[in-house]
Design a protein around this nucleic acid. Structure first.
Lengths: 222, 222
DNA sequence: ACGAGAGTGTAACAATTGTTACACTTTTAT
DNA sequence: ATAAAAGTGTAACAATTGTTACACTCTCGT
């Protein structure tokens, strides 16, 4: 059974491997499966290995001190989960990870990662780049959270997600998830969205969003 | 002139180098100095090299779309600035960096970093760990920002900064900087602080903060 | 096709925070 | 030493967001 497509993985794609099967057998790793909605990793868990999502998709969310949920992101296989934290001094998971469907996770010991990095320059480079991109993602998240008004967050989010040429796009989150993502209350988000629709700035049809007036949308950032 | 103490640097400390001088001469890098309050790096600048702060201290802050300032951290030499971003796909600086005093910065090309990593396992390990710790720092920042009430942020911050045994400590930020750090308005922070003092939860004397009632402080997180 | 449950729209009201303004204190530079 | 600048306390008011509640629509499984 081939469960992993290494070439699609951001940190493994550059590996020059003759025999993928042999490579994976060589790797001292264990594989575990999880059912839909199962909690895979808990915020605060010790992170002594690299967890590679090899099949399915998961969501990560942060539980704040006050019990609020802050949605972080949805991750689809194949991709490593929180790869940076394997190497941190206080190596604990920063988020809860929950299975969105049937999921398969490969657990690779830290020592194995070290070995791969030392013997394989391309792997090292990919791993570094991937981690750097993750940091950039976190920075963007920080930027989004630091916008104080909900309309500003929405504007930032929509402008970021809209291609230059295409002003219509699908957002694969329902309103509740979107509110979690922004760290605001659901009815507050609904109010802002409906006001923006009334003002002719955007239109919403189910999960399809369209920017009608990007000038006004940009003004909401000010 | 010896400007750098490698042993104090989080990513260079483990380097086994006989002749520090020769090592630094070998490194294809350039050194530049900046005056107090000078803007060293601007958010969005292309980041094609590792910037190592070798002397002095700087502050980093993020300018959000709406022009607000979000204070991130104060960095003292020796330490690399935004090391993760050298390797990111979209390698641009995430923050403004401003000199807090006379500052010296060493610019090391990306290729040199790669060479060091490949030839020096300890350097690689330190670099990885440092980047991981930076990610963890960003995650903590994210957690702080996701707390919605100002008192909650203050409580989180104070509890995080207070040692277990010592309930008194110095915060080297004035009220304005603290407000920027929390991403709130200065008078709002002042109001919360004075209420917390009135309620006998904390006491403040200039920059010395003391926790008087840690139980009540913890309740503010709920 | 139909009922249960999830998701959405919206309203009234409460709570928190932001804004602006100004007096006052402390620090810094000359 | 003294003026200028930076930092702090605080008040009135505006604006935004959260809370709670409920009706309505849509989706999905049986």
């Amino acid at each position: 059974m081939k469960t992993v497509d290494l070439s699609a993985c951001p940190v493994c794609s550059k590996l020059k491997i003759d025999d993928e099967g042999a490579f994976l057998e060589d790797l001292k790793c264990s594989i575990k499966t999880y059912a839909k909605n199962e909690l895979i990793l808990r915020q605060g868990d010790v992170c002594d290995a690299l967890y590679m999502l090899t099949l399915g998709s998961v969501k990560t969310e942060m539980i704040t001190d006050n019990g609020n949920i802050l949605g972080i992101e949805i991750i689809k296989a194949p991709r490593p989960l929180a790869p940076a934290f394997v190497f941190s001094d206080n190596n604990r998971f920063p988020v809860d990870v929950t299975a969105l469907e049937e999921v398969e996770i490969m657990k690779i010991p830290k020592a194995e990662i070290m070995r791969l990095m030392m013997t394989n320059p391309d792997f090292m480079s990919s791993f570094m780049t991937h981690n750097a991109n993750r940091t950039q993602f976190l920075t963007n998240r920080l930027q989004l959270l630091s916008i104080k008004t909900i309309k500003g967050k929405v504007a930032h989010f929509l402008l970021e997600n809209s291609a230059v040429d295409n002003k219509t796009f699908i957002i694969n989150r329902n309103q509740t998830e979107l509110a979690d993502f922004f760290g605001v209350a659901r009815p507050s988000l609904a109010r802002c969205l409906s006001e923006m629709v009334q003002d002719g700035i955007i239109s919403i049809n189910k999960k399809e969003y369209r920017i009608l007036n990007s000038k006004k949308l940009r003004e909401l950032l000010i």
